[in-house]
Structures are given as structure tokens and as C-alpha cells.
């Protein structure tokens, strides 16, 4: 069976719809992972030991096991405890938590590298510890880690392909549907790869823009 790319136009609408879902799930999971990462970083650094130590274990498990396995646990595990989430939501939670843990590592290092004087000065002018963290230390730390977090978000885009296995109709599953109808795996997976690559290039472009703005505002 040779190659025949003329089958693509007939099924392009399902692929484009899949692209939109991939962008939606990536954006939603990226937001969750960003704010979750900040939250996790603050817990890991400042929470009392009773919270911090179990949290370390949680972090360690998330970094030591494959995302695909975590997605199976979240999707099927939530059903088992009676929470029947749509696959899309389970996918966002799985991807978002997974990358929140990686972002948290970056943000922790950044928080620690913010000059101690910033915290001391904020406390001296009358801010509480929480306020000083929220208004002075964390904003400076987050700004410093935007570029590496951008790399994590691009990794997140590529890992969003994994949610196809729990049945989210994103780009990969859409390609599989088109293949089911045409028996042309090579053509449609190459097409899906091309779309992922294009989205990836778009994200890199945005990342460069943001980095330039941060550099300017320093």
C-alpha cells in the first residue's frame, strides 16, 4: 500500500477540530500548572513539616513515574471513588498536576535566589510574611523563571498527545478517527505531526516575545 495524501482534504475538518482541542487542553493545563507550580513551591518552602513532608513524597512520586501511568490513575481512580469527570477535565488535571510539580522545582530555586533583603525590607515596612511573599518575593521569582517554564509548556503541548489514550478527542485521537475511516495511518499521523510542529513553533515565537519584554522591563 503506497502513500496517497489526496485522502486528507476530506477529513481535514476533524483534524482541525482536534487541533483546537489540543490548544484548549494545553492552555488549560498550562494555566493550572503555572499557578499550581507557584502554590506547590510555596508549600515546599514554607509550609509546616506535617504538610511539607507528605507533599515531598507526592512530588517525588509525580517525578518518578510516567505521565501516562498518572493519567490512567487519575482517570480511572476518580471514577472508582465516585467522581465521574469528563475525560477532558481528567486530562487537564493530570497534565496540569504533572507539570505543576516540574514548575514548582524551578520556582523553588528562583524563590530561594531572590535576595534576602527583599523579604526583610518588606517585613520592615509592615507587610506580614504572607503579604511579603505574595507581593514582593514570588513576583520577582516568577519573572526569573518564565523562560524555563516556557520550555515546560512546550513539553506539555507534546505530552498532551497522551490524553488521547483516555479518550479526549484532541489532535492525536482525531487523527486516529480519520485513520479508522481511511486506513491511512502514515498520511494522517504525518499530518498530525505537522500540526503539532506548527503549534510548537507558534509557542516558541510567543516565548521569545515574552522573554524580550521581560528583558526590556528589567
Amino acid at each position: 500500500m503506497g502513500l496517497d495524501f489526496t485522502v486528507i482534504p476530506k477529513h481535514i475538518d476533524i483534524i482541525l477540530l482536534g487541533c483546537l482541542w489540543t490548544i484548549a487542553i494545553t492552555a488549560a493545563a498550562a494555566l493550572l500548572s503555572f499557578f499550581g507550580g507557584i502554590f506547590f513551591a510555596v508549600i515546599a518552602l514554607y509550609a509546616p513539616a506535617v504538610i511539607r513532608l507528605p507533599f515531598r513524597l507526592f512530588e517525588w512520586v509525580f517525578m518518578g513515574t510516567p505521565l501516562l501511568l498518572q493519567l490512567f490513575l487519575i482517570y480511572f481512580g476518580l471514577v472508582q471513588i465516585g467522581v465521574d469527570l469528563p475525560a477532558f477535565v481528567a486530562g487537564v488535571i493530570g497534565l496540569g498536576l504533572h507539570f505543576a510539580v516540574y514548575n514548582s522545582e524551578l520556582i523553588q530555586t528562583a524563590i530561594l535566589s531572590v535576595d534576602k533583603g527583599q523579604m526583610e525590607a518588606a517585613r520592615t515596612v509592615g507587610l506580614s510574611r504572607g503579604q511579603a511573599l505574595r507581593k514582593v518575593v514570588v513576583p520577582q521569582a516568577v519573572r526569573a523563571v518564565i523562560p524555563p517554564i516556557g520550555n515546560n509548556m512546550i513539553a506539555l503541548l507534546k505530552d498532551s498527545a497522551l490524553v488521547s489514550v483516555i479518550g479526549v478527542s484532541e489532535l492525536t485521537l482525531s487523527a486516529q478517527r480519520a485513520i479508522g475511516a481511511t486506513y491511512r495511518p502514515f498520511e494522517f499521523y504525518i499530518l498530525a505531526a505537522a500540526f503539532y510542529y506548527a503549534i510548537n513553533l507558534g509557542m516558541e515565537w510567543v516565548q521569545r516575545k515574552i522573554e524580550r519584554r521581560i528583558a526590556l522591563s528589567r
Binding site: K158, D159, S160, A161, L162, S164, T172, A175, P185, F186, Y189, I190, A192, A193, Y196, Y197, N200, L201
Partner: peptide, 11 residues
């Protein structure tokens, strides 16, 4: 590096 490993496997 710019496309998902899963898609590469499927191809």
C-alpha cells in the same frame, strides 16, 4: 523535539 514522541511511534 518539536513533535510528540507518541506520534513518532505511531508513524
Amino acid at each position: 523535539r518539536g513533535t510528540p514522541a507518541l506520534i513518532q511511534l505511531f508513524i
